[in-house]
Computed example of a mutant assay.
Amino acid sequence: MAGWTRSDIGGFLAKQGILIAFFLFIIGFTIANERFLAPENIMGVVRSSAILGVMALGVTFVVISGNLDLSVGSMMSFSTIVVLDLHDKLGPALAIPAMFALTLCLGALIGFLVGYLKLNSLIVTLGMLSAIHGLTLTYSGGKNMDIADKGGTWFSIFGQGEIFGIPVPILIFVGLAALLGIVLARTPFGRKVYAVGGNGVAATFSGIRRARIVFACYLLSSFCVATAGLIQASRSLGSQNTVGQGLELEVLAAVILGGASLLGGSGTIFKTIIGVLILGFIQNGLLLVGLQFYAQYVVTWIIIILAVWLDIAAKRGRLWSPLA
């Protein structure tokens, strides 16, 4: 770094600081516990991160379009409870599409409020977080859901199955990531998402229907949440009605860690995957070194603050505000 100015170093840390911190975490966790880099532990982390990752894929589109979605956690609880309940009433072949349809209706409602009525996405999705949570409790009667015949259903394939030794949740995550990565990077729709998030007014004057793009992003996010709910329900064949509570912050942290800007207009699916894995490995490392699971909440908060700081710093090219 010979010849670099203080501003150059600050800009580099702003753009790559989270990756540097991640590698330092990896080194520290490996020294503290040799099991950290064991193949079975790595596979376990990726598998356990699949649900969070699938949700993060959809939220990536929402964030790039310049909006937020804080309803994904409660929406995942809703989709999980619904598909488990309908499994015994209708059978899995009908329960799955019915759950997707209901979850997409929730996404369409949010997309309509934010896209067409132009309401603030933070306020709308924060309100929907509570509303959908209440809807889930009402639907379930405040009770948890379980499949009656856990040993006689093919429904478990989505969460417990393997294909060629690879867990199905990982295959779903990777397959959906590949598809959405192509959509975002290689299609006119993807370019419009970037345009709307980068400068909504300019996008509108250039002929892009901003409301339609925002609506589609929320619809896509709800589809990903329904997929995550399917995996969650299939993995345990039963669930608490609050299974997704708090996941919205982890999803947002993973997306921002991957480089998507809260200001909109930047981010990629590949980087979101990296953000998901960073969060997954850090949480796994904390457990291996002996910290209790509730310590993850504090670490997640610290990571969110760090990611937002680096995001803003990357925009201005320095770590510290010129006024500091």
Results as ranks from 00 to 15, higher is better:
Cys105Asn: 04
Ala202Tyr: 05
Lys271Glu: 09
Phe36Cys: 04
Trp154Leu: 13
Phe173Arg: 13
Ser77Cys: 11
Trp4Ala: 15
Val201Lys: 14
Ala211Pro: 00
Met128Arg: 12
Arg212Lys: 13
Gly134Val: 03
Thr30Gln: 11
Ser65Gly: 14
Ala38Gly: 01
Ile170Phe: 14
Asn120His: 15
Leu249His: 01
Met55Phe: 00
Val214Leu: 12
Asn241Thr: 12
Ile81Cys: 14
Leu129Lys: 06
Gln160Lys: 15
Ser321Lys: 11
Ser321Asp: 10
Ala324Gly: 09
Ser130Ala: 15
Ala56Arg: 04
Ala32Tyr: 12
Trp4Gly: 06
Phe158His: 08
Leu104Ile: 01
Leu37Phe: 11
Ala14Ser: 12
Leu109Arg: 05
Ser266Gly: 00
Gly142Ile: 03
Ser321Glu: 09
Ala14Ile: 07
Trp4Glu: 13
Ser140Ala: 15
Phe173Lys: 14
Lys192Tyr: 02
Ile96Val: 15
Leu126Ala: 09
Leu310Asn: 08
Leu257Val: 00
Ser221Cys: 10
Gly175His: 06
Thr30Arg: 09
Thr300His: 00
Asn120Ala: 09
Leu102Gln: 03
Gly258Arg: 01
Ile163Lys: 07
Asp149Cys: 00
Leu126Thr: 10
Gly134Glu: 02
Phe155His: 12
Phe25His: 03
Ala2Ile: 06
Val114Ala: 02
Phe215Pro: 07
Val243Leu: 11
Asp8Tyr: 05
Cys224Tyr: 08
Gly91Pro: 14
Val243Lys: 13
Ala295Asp: 02
Gly66Ser: 04
Leu122Val: 11
Phe173Thr: 10
Pro92Asp: 02
Arg186Pro: 00
Leu287Asn: 10
Asn241Met: 07
Gly265Cys: 07
Gly267Cys: 01
Lys271Gln: 13
Ser321Asn: 08
Ala2Val: 06
Tyr294Leu: 06
Glu248Ser: 08
Ser206Cys: 02
Phe61Arg: 10
Pro92Gln: 08
Gln283Met: 07
Gly3Lys: 11
Ile166Asn: 06
Asn144Asp: 06
Glu162Gly: 00
Gly200Lys: 14
Ala195Glu: 04
Gly165Glu: 08
Leu277Ile: 05
Val62Tyr: 10
Leu24Arg: 06
Pro97Asn: 03
Thr268Trp: 11
Ala21Thr: 11
Thr204Lys: 12
Arg47His: 00
Leu109Val: 15
Gly317Tyr: 04
Gly198Pro: 08
